[in-house]
């Protein structure tokens, strides 16, 4: 008997053989699926309708500045199956657009809006991409990008000083 996690990986691989970059079981209750960015909507719809992943838990972006890519991760929980799938996709850093998944999981509304304001990732089809957490007069770059630098903490200043002095 195969477990739920393996079943999810199996079926997603047979349904989308071309578009899945990687699909694996991370551990018990965790499945990670990496897809091409243009197919994320179809995969999301398949996950929701066929496999019962109905409960969106979070949408997060990660800024991989070294490879000049953003990764967007939709974490979705299946209430009946008791599995969490991480649906992830990479998009180029200079043109960060992605099809919005709020038609699939309506609960992603505020999550996507937050990801937009924190990373500058445009979600096509999102009805209201406006500032949510940041102040109304914010005109700086998206703050969670890695090239948005915070002022140094005292500890970091100390480390810098030691480094400059040639110490450890």
């Amino acid at each position: 008997m195969t477990s739920m996690e393996e079943k999810v990986v199996e079926s997603i691989k047979t349904r989308f053989p071309e578009d899945i970059i990687e699909a694996k079981v991370q551990r018990k209750n965790r499945v990670s699926i990496s897809v091409r960015s243009d197919k994320i909507y179809d995969v999301g719809l398949f996950l929701r309708d066929e496999l019962g992943f109905n409960h969106i838990t979070s949408v997060s972006g990660v800024d991989y500045i070294d490879t000049k890519e953003f990764e967007v991760i939709y974490n979705v929980w299946a209430i009946d199956g008791k599995v969490l799938v991480s649906l992830r996709t990479k998009i180029p850093r200079d043109n960060p657009t992605l099809k919005s998944l709020i038609k699939v999981w309506e609960g992603a509304f505020y999550h996507e809006r937050e990801t937009w304001e924190m990373f500058g990732i445009k979600f096509e089809g999102h009805p209201n991409l406006s500032l949510l957490l940041l102040p109304e007069d914010w005109d700086g770059p998206p703050p969670l990008r890695k090239d948005f630098l915070l002022p140094d903490t005292p500890q970091e200043k100390l480390e810098e000083k030691i480094k400059r002095a040639g110490g450890q």
Binding site: P143, L144, L150, T153
Partner: peptide, 16 residues
């Protein structure tokens, strides 16, 4: 309209 107590904890956490 939220964000009046936004402290940027996610960003600050990357520095600590």
């Amino acid at each position: 309209d939220i964000g009046y107590t936004h402290r940027g904890i996610e960003k600050l956490a990357e520095k600590r």
